[in-house]
């Protein structure tokens, strides 16, 4: 068993400081045929920052996320993660709006899907179990996904994203399909694992309030350009309905609705 190459951060204190990756986007464009979705995005995201991207439907926010997660390639410009323009796919994990669990694999095996890059002999079982415990589902490893609730499935998806210790975790409206209470629980869980692990987090959301609750920085995307870049410097954990947060939310909403 080759521990050294598999477990990049064997020491937990090292893992924290080395966890988040630095993202740099230079003039990133993306077109589908004649339709240009992203017009030269320049972004600098320091390691470990929690960034929320908001915007209207079709503003290009999901496209940007797909570029960051390596599912699509940009039409122009460069994406650098820790100074490298390629080969960083392993460091980035994408969490989808739907859990997208394999229904024919038990929960633990679904989490182990996140270890596809791990070499032979890696202790996938233990890694998967640890990730499940992080999301509070330590006892459900042997269940079929079909018996879980919507919120639990999304937590399994989170465990699957976390299990490879990604340095960037991208969320594509991960809470969009959940009910209001489960949503608040999931927000708290995401915030907690982010603080715990120190990865760079990028959340795409429709919900400005969610963006302000979770993020250090909110980017407003409009017609494929960054229209607004707001720093949210509020203490954590943030309470829902906090007046300072509400003020920031109001500013973003005003811009979004062009009032």
């Amino acid at each position: 068993m080759n521990v050294a190459t598999f477990d990049a951060y064997p020491d937990s204190t090292v893992r924290y400081s080395a966890a988040g990756a630095h993202l740099q986007l230079r003039g990133v464009t993306k077109s589908f045929g004649a339709n240009t979705v992203l017009h030269g995005i320049d972004l600098d995201i320091p390691p470990g920052q929690f960034v929320a991207i908001v915007g209207r439907s079709g503003c290009g926010k999901s496209t940007l996320l797909r570029l960051l997660s390596g599912l699509d390639k940009p039409s122009g410009g460069t994406i650098e993660i820790e100074g490298a323009t390629t080969g960083w796919d392993d460091h980035v994990r994408l969490m989808f709006q739907e859990p997208r669990l394999l229904p024919w694999q038990r929960v633990a095996a679904n989490v182990a899907v996140g270890l596809s890059h791990a070499p032979r002999g890696a202790d996938r079982k233990r890694e998967a179990q640890e990730a499940l415990e992080q999301v509070g589902l330590g006892t459900r490893g042997g269940d079929w996904p079909s018996v879980l609730s919507g919120g639990q499935k999304q937590r399994v998806a989170l465990a699957r994203a976390l299990v490879s210790h990604p340095r960037v975790l991208a969320f594509d409206e991960p809470l969009g399909a959940l009910d209001a209470l489960t949503r608040i629980e999931m927000q708290a869980l995401i915030e907690q694992v982010w603080q715990d692990k120190g990865f760079t987090a990028i959340v795409v959301t429709h919900d400005v309030s969610e963006a302000v609750t979770l993020a250090d920085r909110v980017l407003l995307l409009d017609h494929g350009r960054v229209d607004m870049d707001v720093t949210v410097d509020l203490p954590r954990p943030r309470r829902h309905g906090d007046p300072a947060a509400a003020a920031i939310e109001g500013r973003i909403l005003d811009r979004l609705l062009a009032r």
């Binding site: 599912l71 994990r93 989808f96 394999l102 024919w104 694999q105 899907v113 996140g114 596809s116």
Partner: peptide, 27 residues
């Protein structure tokens, strides 16, 4: 399709995609 996209995003090899996604999905 969403599962296939997930499998690609999570770095599964073509062989793994066949045995863990396509075949059980078609079963």
């Amino acid at each position: 399709r969403q599962l296939l996209e997930m499998a690609r995003a999570y770095g599964m090899s073509n062989q793994a995609i066949f045995w863990r996604v396509v075949f059980p999905g078609a079963l």
